[in-house]
Design a protein around this nucleic acid. Structure first.
Lengths: 241, 241
DNA sequence: CCTGCCCATAGTGTATACAAAAATTGGCAG
DNA sequence: CTGCCAATTTTTGTATACACTATGGGCAGG
């Protein structure tokens, strides 16, 4: 449990000063988003308390909220863990996100100011560059920034919040089910097509673009016969060690 | 603060036995759904603790979760209150619900077993009867049962959960903005039309039916120039008392 | 009569103690 | 060597104490 993300958080704590449950929620969410803490990771309350320099009360509040957001699972008397949705749930997450993000971009089509489009375009450029350099961490960062930007600027703020949550859950399942053979889940041109439709004010085109994008992304995952995926990993781990 | 719902809850507590935060969440949610606790109601932690016979720890956990579900609002150092969304947010809630519930019924079209349709038909009959008798409480109960049944049986469970939450939030805004002149928000035939489309397996028809239904419902509310709605209530209260 | 300040009260924020449940480890028997 | 049981440790569940913040009412001053 003495991993990388802990040190990152600790550093941030020491720099920032007072820490509230909101900060803890944000940090853990960020760590999950950027796939620094993988699905299934144990999150004991005392350990988190020591890391953040607060008592269990605050940690518990943060964990309760993270559970509401479906970032972690909490079963009675058991340690909280980062969610690890099964295959069925993964399909449902993607379907829900297609619906919600489709509506958000449809609402957004033709409503973005030029400078807002420029922000999106900037992230797209950066994403492309990061992909070219093979910097997958940076690429994910910019890809997420694009989708979160859409969520944050949704004319319907409720759909925006829903989309934020679905982006997070999508990140989790990508971390879980990404085909090991693939170095990246980059889909060349998808984001550019979307931006073009948004600029044109083509609501239905934007919806289709996002729908295609997410469908392609889902296809990049390995979502067959789950059964022993985890058991195999354990076995290989033993053999390798 | 010594209202009706408290007694109902207390009775349930004495009957049931041990109470967990989940029970508290359910009871408060139910009380909000059935409009027994109106928007803006104060929910102090100690009072709730005494009512349910638990300490603030448990109450706090329940409140944290209710805040995540947007049932209550929690601002630092202030007492929790039942949410009272403004007009803009009300429109957004309805728009989100149209999208989500539309998709749910589209997915459900042609997939319901005859006995499931019978359950729905039963609630619709009961709703109609309650309306005829002027029993608005019972009518709301059955109307909610219909929509919750759809949510609970959504093939996509994630959309189902989202719909549940949106139904709850819709109840809140109806309680807030219902035109005082209207005795009921009953829309004759809407639910029957929906059931017919579901039976026929007409996905798009079902989507349209729900969309119409919700649009009509929204139109029954008084969503003009909010400004002094609350102030007026306070003034009338003073004059009346 | 109205306004602004101050204090009493109510209520939340956080830490901590103790109890109970789950996970782990070790040893022991087969 | 394997499987099972028990003791130990880890971890969560709940209550409670104390500190801090907001709220409302009364009082002095204008």
């Amino acid at each position: 449990m003495s991993n990388q993300w802990q040190e990152t958080m600790l550093a941030e704590v020491k720099a920032g000063g007072r820490i509230s449950d909101q900060h803890i929620v944000d940090m853990i969410r960020q760590a999950v988003l950027s796939q620094r803490l993988p699905p299934g990771t144990r999150l004991p309350e005392v350990a988190l308390g020591e890391i953040f320099g607060v008592s269990r009360s605050v940690v518990r509040k943060a964990l309760t909220r993270l559970a509401s957001y479906h970032v972690i699972t909490q079963q009675p008397n058991q340690v909280a863990r980062v969610c690890a949705p099964d295959i069925d749930e993964t399909h449902e997450i993607f379907a829900a996100r297609r619906l919600v993000e489709g509506e958000v971009v449809a609402l957004l089509a033709g409503k973005l100011e030029p400078e807002q489009c420029a922000v999106l375009a900037g992230h797209m450029e950066a994403e492309k560059a990061a992909y070219a350099e093979g910097d997958e961490t940076a690429r994910i960062e910019h890809s997420l920034a694009i989708h979160h930007y859409l969520a944050d600027h949704s004319p319907n703020r409720i759909l925006g919040k829903m989309l934020s949550e679905l982006i997070l859950r999508t990140s989790i399942v990508i971390a879980l089910y990404k085909q090991p053979s693939l170095a990246s889940c980059y889909l060349e041109g998808d984001h550019d097509t979307l931006l073009a439709r948004l600029r044109d004010g083509d609501a239905e085109g934007a919806r289709r673009a996002i729908d295609n994008h997410l469908a392609s992304l889902e296809r990049l995952l390995d979502l067959r016969a789950q059964e022993n995926r985890i058991d195999l990993a354990a076995i290989f781990g033993k053999l390798g060690g």
